[in-house]
Design a binder for these strands. Structure first.
Length: 953
RNA sequence: GCGAGAGUGGCGGAAUUGGCAGACGCGCUGGACUUAGGAUCCAGUGCCGCAAGGCGUAAGGGUUCAAGUCCCUUCUCUCGCACCA
């Protein structure tokens, strides 16, 4: 019994914590607050993965550590439980998704409790709880009720939206429509992937090469009414507010990249209101247009007489030798001349059939057609031909570009393909690699230089030219400065039956047809629950499955008007956009959160989760938070002050060899990867078989791993992502059963830096279990019948050396935990244990210290040992050990002596020895003295307390 | 192609501001205790060499008394984005 047995110890303490609500956080923080958050999991049917406990252990360590440091800590957990798998399971088995979800949550909850995390379980929420999504719907109402005032740079109530006179004059319906167009939540016809064979709409990633991932059925893109959220309005704030956040540069870069801000100019190219005979702008009309623009300035929206483009390089305007519009551009018909009709139509139809992926994937060679029309270049007034090509995206900028083949790689390729003129207008400068080719139009140069072939601007440096010409054209009303973002508005509706219903009603006329008028459900009438469903199967139409709901759910009469409910549901992202707020006030049925609570606990001080959410979840949550900030619901601009992404845990390292069909080996250097990742013989193209090789059959030779039996055969060695198909998945339940939760926690922290990707190793788990066994035996008499202290543990003071070890360990472990460097913290505790197991009499003070230091990482064993050391209560709120720097200092130290930078000897000197004394000691060292014999010392470097280096000749 | 990160023993990984490369763990070798060990304890373990010694942080160059760490060039791997004008 007195052997360390986690199967007994761990459940015992888990029950203790639960019964005593040891980790319940107060409503409002008492003293310094700390909000530590994990990305809550999607409770999948597979149960917990070993990746989950990695981040959860890290946050748990921080929480337990800071509680002992006296902070008021809130550490909640919940479930991001809407999701497609439960819906698909329902279709397959007719089991309601709520039932499946609750079952999965129960499994996850059990597994998390089994790992001893110090969550305040009273705060548990699930995004699928009606009491929870009531507030998700409430936030949607805020979005619906908000427009973005770009002058004030903030969201404001829709009632404050100024209505232009001309709209006002058109009556109420026009005003409503105008408002609807400006809301942060608005409707749009957007294309979806409709798969007739499956009878459902598919997400982009479920469509591969125009076929459904499941079953390879054809998928067509059809327009469907959708809800959109105007995240683009917040693009610049989402970008600029990144600056004050304590996030890794990598994640910030990822977000910036995704937002994709670029600055440049919008420029209008005159095309003429009506098509002309030769396709070129009529000079007289053009002249008149220039005059008008000179006085009217640059209009907000382009009229039909111009083709507006966005460019980041207005300085290359003189080199714009043609223009390109996207196949979906509204002016396609207007610009296509009669003789080009057939060709253009065929091209556009073909482009429409391609998915976004196909367009980019096989776009190594460019395609396009000439429209027959020309536009006037506002810089030099010359006509340039207008082409249609799908390398220009309809959704970015204005969907049209000015093409400068000499200075844009894509335009260059296109110009080569279709033999269009290439005029260099930027001189790369003397000494540039292929300057002559660039100037001759035989190469493309995309960087900055000085202007040429640009009339009076010749010689102007790129940056200066950009500003100059933009200002000049702006004065003439032909251009303006502009900013563009890659970020698109957020497609917020899904055609699913397992998601949050929208709190929106569509007004119906007497005939039962929608009038186009929307009505938001009043906040006090929320929640809108999901309708009860009797069967779960696709109804075979693209419209949402909730269209099949019973009529008493679907139709509503209010104030004498009939309405039909919105039948789209929200995407899974919705619930995770604000859960961190609800955790702080989970049971409030008057408000999303009590303002006093929000003010006291927010923002989240530490947020840890997987890097897979680095872009979308974090961006969406930040966006919602900013809207709530603008509307006065929250008081912080950003929700997550510090963010850390834990790295992925891979399967165990695998050594792979390659064999031909006849079983003979092929060296890895002769293997290449074919389609579908199948290994092929580089020389013959023969298909090979990848074979797992046992560690004992492989050895290292030089830089490569080879077969023991035949060293000419090289092998590959790498770890792979855990996957069912590869059979390398590690189940936390099994690990806990075999080694215990503390061992699992400790091992995951010991594997390496939190943020690194690292392979699993079962012998490594065994190793940390061995450490816990040693800690146990250091304190417990494991030969006794009953649990009792080892006789070696005695109430004696620490001697000097022991005190040094104790205090140094406190210092280092404290510092390492603060840095989230748990692997080194564990190493320090192992050193401590190695030292004290070798000591016959172990002072109680030392043992109590190590137990406290270990407790955030391995809390169960620590609580058990703490009790054994004579304490009656949990150590969860025991003060964290303090160290005394004076006790760490040694009276004498050993320092290396180098000659020409090479260590030649060591000397022991008093710790406070001055440079002279150190040098004298170094010279006195026998070995050093011998080597210095007959040499001239040019210089002596003394790093106090570190080393001595003699530079000799 | 662009962006981010990383290359250190057989393996996972340590190494304040440039200051003893390889902490700690795994694995391996030898030993002790054992009927036995997948238990425990002790010793060893970067590479070459009998040794003295030499060589070593992806490769090459540089700065420095001193470089895993700073600078330049190149290579490889992982992740993300990918015709964003």
């Amino acid at each position: 019994m007195p052997r360390y047995n986690p199967a007994v110890v761990e459940p015992k303490w888990q029950q203790f914590w639960e019964r005593n609500k040891t980790f319940a956080a107060p409503r409002l923080p008492a003293g310094e607050k700390l909000y530590v958050l994990d990305m809550f999991p999607y409770p999948s049917g597979n149960g917990l993965h070993v990746g989950h406990p990695e981040g959860y252990t890290a946050t748990d360590i921080v929480c337990r550590f800071e509680r002992m440091n006296g902070k008021s800590v809130v550490h909640p957990m919940g479930w991001d439980a809407f999701g497609l798998p439960a819906e698909q399971h329902a279709i397959k088995t007719q089991q309601p998704p709520r039932v499946t979800t609750e079952k999965n949550i129960a499994t996850f909850r059990r597994q998390l409790k089994m790992l001893g995390f110090s969550y305040d379980w009273d705060r548990e929420v699930s995004t699928t709880d009606v009491d929870y999504f009531r507030w998700t719907q409430w936030i949607f109402l805020q979005l619906f009720d908000t427009w973005y005032d770009s002058a004030a740079k903030r969201g404001r109530p829709i009632a404050e939206l100024p209505i232009p006179d001309d709209v006002q004059a058109q009556g109420d319906l026009a005003v409503d429509k105008y408002r609807d167009e400006h809301r942060l939540a608005y409707q749009l016809e957007a294309p979806v992937n409709w798969c007739p064979a499956l009878g459902t709409v598919l997400a982009n990633e479920e469509v591969i090469g125009g076929l459904s991932e499941r079953g390879q059925h054809p998928v067509v893109r059809i327009p469907l009414r959708q809800w959109m959220l105007r995240i683009t309005a917040y693009a610049d704030r989402l970008e600029s507010d990144l600056e004050g956040l304590d996030w890794s540069e990598g994640i910030k870069a990822l977000q910036r990249n995704w937002i994709g801000r670029s600055t440049g100019a919008e420029v209008d190219f005159f095309i003429g209101k009506e098509p002309s005979k030769n396709g070129k702008p009529v000079p007289a009309e053009f002249k008149q247009w220039r005059e008008t623009r000179g006085s009217s300035g640059f209009p907000r929206t382009p009229g039909p007489e111009v083709l507006r483009v966005f460019t980041t390089r207005p300085d290359t305007l003189y080199g714009a030798t043609y223009m390109v519009i996207a196949p979906e551009h509204p002016l396609v018909a207007r610009l296509t001349t009669a003789d080009r009709q057939a060709e253009v139509q065929a091209y556009c139809e073909q482009a429409a059939r391609k998915s976004d992926l196909d367009r980019t994937d096989l776009a190594k060679h460019k395609t396009g057609v000439f429209t027959g029309s020309f536009a006037a270049n506002p810089a030099n007034n010359r006509p340039v031909p207008i082409w249609i090509a799908d390398y220009v995206l309809a959704g970015y900028g204005t969907g049209a570009i000015m093409a400068v083949p000499a200075h844009d790689e894509r335009d260059y390729e296109f110009a080569k393909q279709f033999d269009l003129p290439i005029v260099a207008v930027v001189d790369p400068g003397e000494g540039a690699k292929n300057r002559d080719d660039v100037l001759a139009g035989k190469a493309c140069f995309g960087e900055h230089g000085t202007a040429i072939n640009s009339s009076e601007y010749d010689g102007t440096p790129t940056a200066e030219f950009k500003a100059k010409i933009t200002a000049e054209l702006a004065k003439r009303g032909a251009a303006r400065e502009a900013v563009n973002y890659k970020l698109r508005d957020w497609l917020f509706s899904r055609q699913h039956f397992w998601g949050e219903p929208f709190p929106i009603l569509h007004e119906l006329d007497a005939a039962g047809n929608p009038t186009g008028r929307l009505r938001a459900i009043a906040a006090e009438d929320l929640p809108v629950n999901l309708p009860p469903m009797t069967e779960f199967k696709p109804h075979g139409r693209p419209e949402p499955p909730l269209e099949e709901a019973s009529h008493d759910w679907l139709y509503v009469t209010l104030d004498g008007k009939r309405y039909k409910r919105e039948t789209n549901t929200m995407p899974q992202w919705a619930g995770s956009c604000w859960y961190f707020l609800r955790f702080l006030d989970p049971k409030n049925n008057q408000a999303l959160i009590d303002p006093a609570i929000e003010k006291a606990w927010m923002p989240v001080d530490l947020y840890i989760g997987g890097a897979e959410h680095a872009v979308l979840h974090l961006l969406y949550a930040r966006f919602w938070h900013k809207v709530l900030y603008d509307r006065g619901v929250v008081t912080t601009k950003e929700p997550f002050q510090k963010l850390v992404n834990q790295g992925m845990i891979l399967g165990e390292l695998e050594i792979t060899g390659y064999q031909k069909a006849d079983g003979s080996w092929v060296s890895a250097k002769d293997v290449k990867e074919g389609d579908d990742e199948k290994p092929l013989d580089r020389r013959t193209g023969e298909e090979l078989k990848a074979v797992r090789v046992a560690t004992s059959d492989a050895k290292k030779e030089g830089d490569s791993l080879v077969l023991v039996a035949d060293s000419s055969i090289r092998l590959d060695s790498r770890a792979f992502k855990m996957s069912k198909s590869r059979g390398n998945v590690i189940n936390p339940d099994d690990v806990v059963k075999e080694y215990g939760a503390d061992s699992l926690r400790l091992y995951e922290m010991f594997m390496g830096p939190l943020e690194a990707t690292k392979p699993w190793s079962t012998t490594g788990v065994n190793g940390v279990r061995g450490f816990l066994d040693r800690v146990w035996r250091m304190i417990v008499n494991d030969r006794a019948e009953h649990l009792e202290l080892s006789a070696a543990v005695q109430d004696v003071p620490l001697n000097e050396e022991q005190a040094r070890v104790v205090h140094r360990t406190i210092r280092d472990v404290t510092q390492d935990i603060r840095r989230l460097s748990f692997n080194t913290a564990i190493a320090k505790m192992m050193e401590f244990t190695n030292f004290f197991t070798g000591v016959e009499v172990r002072p109680r003070e030392a043992m109590e210290t190590i137990v406290l230091l270990l407790s955030p990482l391995a809390p169960h064993i620590a609580e058990e040992l703490w009790g054994l050391l004579g304490h009656k209560t949990t150590l969860a709120y025991e003060p964290w050990p303090k160290f005394d720097e004076a006790k760490i200092k040694e009276s004498s130290i050993e320092i290396p002596v180098q000659i020409l930078g090479k260590v030649r000897g060591r000397v022991v000197v008093p710790a406070d020895a001055d440079e002279k004394a150190i040098e004298a000691a170094a010279r006195a060292d026998e070995k050093v003295a011998a080597l210095l014999e007959g040499k001239t010392i040019v210089k002596t470097i003394i790093a106090k307390g570190r080393l001595v280096n003699f530079v000799v000749k």
